[in-house]
């Protein structure tokens, strides 16, 4: 196996004192170059906390983390600077001559099919367009590790489907390692090589997905994996909370 771009060893993260249970509890994780990993977990299970550590936004106090140089994040909210035109948001922070960075930004916008909005103000974008701008802003940096924190959660169902296939295409074209945080089991199975489940601060599951690409929900084996992941998440097939029903 190729050397990892990400290596976590015994990563522990607490927000309260040492007595309280940690949000992340001795996490070990490696991600290979170009690998697409999905991270599932219930709300509040610590997915964002793990992603922030991988982004280098939070300090590592317990355990160790080896991270690549070039990392990029797409947050759940677009986090665009409203006072900069779309292309300028994409070019922000790029090193190099002004002309060249602008060309790079425009090229990235073309890839996410937003060329026609390059000169628009961010507050005039639709939710999907704003997230695509965020995606362009991340890709233009040619990251070795692309971190996506529920980037489609606030989009309508149709836009979400289009965004999912766009992410799949861009990943095929650029091959960064990806960590996609999501609470949508189908989304994870449609995109990822490997699905992790975070529960009680630990990685409760590390499930390789060997379904052929492009992925289809109707494919053989898809449903089996879906049910299995839902069970691990404590939800039965119809979406009922299994724990609640047992009680």
């Amino acid at each position: 196996m190729a050397p990892s771009v990400v290596r976590l060893r015994g990563l522990t993260r607490r927000f309260q004192g040492p007595a309280a249970p940690p949000v992340l509890d001795r996490i070990d994780l490696g991600i290979a170059p170009g690998e697409f990993v999905a991270l599932l977990g219930r709300s509040g299970s610590g997915k964002t906390t793990l992603l922030r550590t991988l982004a280098g936004l939070d300090p590592v106090t317990e355990g160790e983390a080896v991270l690549p140089q070039r990392r990029a994040v797409v947050f759940q909210e677009p986090r665009l600077l409203p006072w900069k035109k779309v292309w300028h948001n994409v070019a922000l922070g790029l090193a190099g001559e002004a002309r060249a960075t602008r060309d790079k930004a425009l090229e990235a916008l073309r890839e996410v099919e937003l060329s026609h909005r390059a000169e628009a103000w961010p507050l005039t974008l639709s939710g999907g367009e704003a997230q695509r701008t965020g995606l362009a802003r991340a890709l233009v940096r040619q990251p070795e590790l692309l971190l996506l924190d529920e980037p489609f959660a606030s989009l309508d169902a149709l836009t979400r489907l289009r965004m999912q296939s766009l992410v799949a295409e861009l990943w095929q074209a650029h091959r960064p390692a990806v960590l996609l945080v999501t609470h949508d089991v189908e989304e994870a199975l449609l995109l990822a090589d490997r699905v992790l489940v975070l529960a009680n601060g630990r990685l409760a599951e590390d499930l390789p997905v060997s379904l052929p690409r492009p992925r289809r929900r109707a494919a053989e084996g898809f449903d089996m994996l879906r049910v299995r992941l839902l069970n691990i998440l404590g939800v039965d097939e119809d979406g009922h909370d299994a724990a609640a029903r047992a009680a």
Binding site: L57, R71, F75, E77, R79, K84, A95, R137, R141
Partner: peptide, 23 residues
């Protein structure tokens, strides 16, 4: 949240002031 986004885009303190804080 915008400052954080700026940080991960590689903006230094001066660039953050110019592109994020002052506007």
């Amino acid at each position: 949240k915008l400052l954080e986004a700026g940080r991960i885009l590689g903006l230094g303190r001066a660039a953050q002031i110019r592109h994020i804080i002052l506007p």
